[in-house]
């Protein structure tokens, strides 16, 4: 067997090992979601602060941003200011709604978090974790954007800040609010 074949074989073996390594130990947060372009699962649950029932159905025909968070999540604290800034930027648009989804948390901890860090929009409690499963959530923070037709158009795992914030506001929310097609899959 000549040298060329040997090198090719070694490269193929290395590639296989890399694939197995990625499959076994890779971060699931980098796996592309299968939910983009699919109808958003409807849900209802209690408001973290008031206890009143919030349902996704009441926002039909609007662009809805869902942000999954928890009081024990460090990255949620990191993105919190930008999340508030994002709401501030679009809150006057009647076609825009922002909802926080409190995930795997204790109610007093979640309420304290909102009191300490402040909030300007509603947050629904995912009491049984069903909402997180319906949205294929791996961990928090995760952010979804649902268009006016109720289709999931964007998902991001991790804190929304910097270039992600710019992409989300300029290339996802604004086009969706103006009923413009998105340039590409912007997740």
């Amino acid at each position: 067997m000549n040298k060329g074949w040997q090198i090719t074989l070694i490269l193929v073996l290395f590639g296989l090992f890399a694939l197995f390594y990625q499959g076994l130990w890779g971060d699931p947060r980098h796996i592309p979601t299968v939910l983009i372009g699919t109808p958003a699962a409807t849900f209802e649950g209690p408001d973290v602060e008031t206890g009143q029932t919030i349902s996704l159905d009441q926002f039909k025909g609007k662009v809805v941003l869902l942000n999954f968070w928890a009081s024990w999540c460090y990255e949620c604290k990191v993105e919190h200011e930008d999340i508030l800034r994002l709401h501030q930027a679009f809150k006057d648009n009647p076609d825009f709604v922002m909802l926080g989804v409190n995930y795997q948390d204790k109610l007093p901890d979640a309420q304290k978090y909102l009191k300490d860090f402040g909030t300007t929009f509603s947050h629904v409690r995912d009491v049984k974790g069903q909402l997180a499963i319906d949205y294929g959530v791996y961990g928090v923070p995760e952010t979804f954007v649902i268009d006016k037709e109720g289709i999931i158009r964007f998902k991001y795992v991790g804190p929304v800040m910097g270039p992600v914030y710019t992409n989300l506001t300029e290339h996802v929310i604004r086009p969706l609010l103006n009923s413009q097609p998105l340039a590409s899959t912007p997740s």
Binding site: Q104, K128, G129, Q130, A132, I133
Partner: peptide, 9 residues
């Protein structure tokens, strides 16, 4: 906890 919730589901 997520695994438990999945089992419940």
């Amino acid at each position: 906890p997520l695994a438990k919730q999945m089992r419940d589901a």
